[in-house]
Amino acid sequence: MRKNLFNVGALMRGFSTTFSYMFKKMPTIQYPSVKKQHAPRFHGLHELRRYDDGKERCIGCELCAIACPANAITVIGAENTPEDRRSPGERYAARYEIDELRCIFCGLCEEACPTDAIVLTPRFEMADYRRGAFVYAKDRLLVPPEAGTGTPPDERPNGIPADLGGVMRAKDTVDIAEGYDATNRGHILRTQRRGLAALRQTQDEPR
């Protein structure tokens, strides 16, 4: 005890350390007003990209959903028809939902995608007061048609690309009830397993 209490040199070093730290440069970023430049391949919110002609890249193959270790992605595919071609392939994603609360932002969906449709963007500000709002459907994931193809991940500048899907605009108009439904994974997965036929069936049923 004596040794510790009367070790004046150690005390002085402590005091000089704290005093000198007063004049050091702070690493603080004044967050809402100043935003950090992220690495170009920062794993943030997802987006679904398009081809040059405006068609969706996603072909509804569900490989991302299979690759997803957190089981956060739900894809329900549907057949393209000659009158309504959404994607160049046979199928397109009728529903595409990512539960961002389950997502661990590992990027495996990005790697699994055969058409580079799903990519992760550097956008990370997803906070919301409503749990259901974290289930992102196509209305918020898909790049809007007027934004063109969207910047490919390899060509992104440091920071948030301007051409992301209209997430912020869409946020206030989200159908929360649908989000709550989607968080009920059991139901969705059952629907998914029954496949397209089942979905069609439920849609065709008279209400």
Binding site: T18, F19, Y21, M22, F23, K24, M26, T28, Q30
Partner: peptide, 13 residues
């Protein structure tokens, strides 16, 4: 404020 500076943060601002 001062404790913030000593801990390399800006304190209430």
């Amino acid at each position: 404020k001062v404790m913030g500076w000593m801990q390399l943060r800006p304190g209430p601002n």
